[in-house]
């Protein structure tokens, strides 16, 4: 993703997500520039899937992406730090009980 504020003579920036095969999640593949969604999809196919790397492609205008920032990574994620009881290994079972998970 680009954070550039420089005025550009280039087309809009898009983020490309590809799915390797059905059942797998879409993954960020990279970005590209295109004037509209249709061209963005066609370009994404030609740039990121010339060898069947994808069975499905998402393109999203980069300006629509919202993300966490590295600076507040600590405070943003720390609510999860002290909650060990969210994990199954926090709990002990009585001796002799067989527990498969």
């Amino acid at each position: 993703m680009s954070e550039s504020n420089i005025p550009t003579n280039q087309w809009k920036l898009w983020e490309v997500f590809t799915q390797k095969k059905s059942g797998l999640p879409h993954e960020h593949a990279g970005s590209l520039r295109a004037p509209d969604a249709e061209m963005a999809l066609l370009n994404a196919r030609d740039v990121y899937s010339r060898r069947n790397e994808a069975v499905s492609i998402w393109v999203v205008p980069s300006e629509c992406m919202v993300s966490s920032t590295p600076e507040d990574v600590g405070s943003f994620f720390d609510p999860a730090n002290d909650k060990l009881y969210r994990h199954p290994n926090f709990y002990k079972t009585p001796d002799g009980v067989k527990w498969t998970s």
Partner: peptide, 16 residues
């Protein structure tokens, strides 16, 4: 194209 777009993440524009 891959490398231009990777370079754009550093704040430079492809046109530039």
């Amino acid at each position: 194209l891959y490398i231009y777009s990777a370079a754009e993440t550093l704040g430079i524009d492809r046109g530039e």
